[in-house]
Amino acid sequence: MIANNKKLNPPFNYKTIILVLLIIFILIFSAQRVGIPNIVDRLYEVSLDIIGVKETSRISDGLSSIANEMWPPVIETKKDINLILNFDSSNLPFYSFIENQKVQLYETNLETLELESREEEVLFLVEPFGYLKLVLLKVIESIEIAFWASFIALIISIPLAYYSAKNYAPNKTIYFLSRSIVSGLRAIPELISVLFMVLAFGFGPAAGIMALGLHSAGFLGKFFAEDIENANQGPQDALKALGSSRWRILKEAVLPQVMPQYVAYILYILDRNLRMATVIGLVGGGGIGQELKGRFDLFEYGHVTTIILVIFIVVFIFDQISAKLRNKLIGNSS
């Protein structure tokens, strides 16, 4: 009889204990560095504030300083007609009106050299939904940025995926090169790459499209390639034995297998680009982000609220649509 000298590994041993202690030590050290105690402190304070034990807290002070100004959202525009070029009062923009308002003007009296205020009537052109319209136009621009970026990403990622799949790359050098490009594209965050794209393509949507497109091409290239590598080998062997070339095998034996995953990746990229497209405007990439940044810098929090609400609604609607689309494209298998 063969002696069975194999023992089951115990669930943990001294190595496990050392490892756990080490992890705890690192966590404590790191928590100090990044200010976790500060977070705990302030959350404790604000909870005392909420239950009424304490009068104030730093969190509520900080947020309440702008909370009052964030409501209501601003949806109208109001412009001094003297500042509008070629103003034509007989031909007002749709659904707008002229409002007469008294404004305080401050002027230095040249004789007394003192600041004097006087009231003056100024005519304003009011468009009740003017700002909402502007925000919507900017949001549409962001959506366009997201779509174009995803489209460019798809186009770039197809050859990248083919050459990054070990079993389809023509040789090791090309495989390595392609993998490097894929990693490189994903390594640079969009918020950084858009700064370079602004230098290359100027401020505006083009810079945003390129920044988002290249980053998501890296993402799609990687995941497309990995699915190709992991695809069931059997049908590929069968077609290979029939004398089929690589791209034919890829199209007929691999693509049908990986398609549902690919659709999911593309929808995810669209979703992600939509959210990122609102952000990259902050650093010059066009779209609603530019508007958001401008209003924030001018402390116009009412406008900020409008923008955030519109972004929320758009993202929500897109979520619904993409869930439906996903179900339709990859849901049932009958």
Partner: peptide, 12 residues
Amino acid sequence: TIYQNFNLVSRS
């Protein structure tokens, strides 16, 4: 060729 695992393209 005919295979043990059939080697058909699923989803087709």
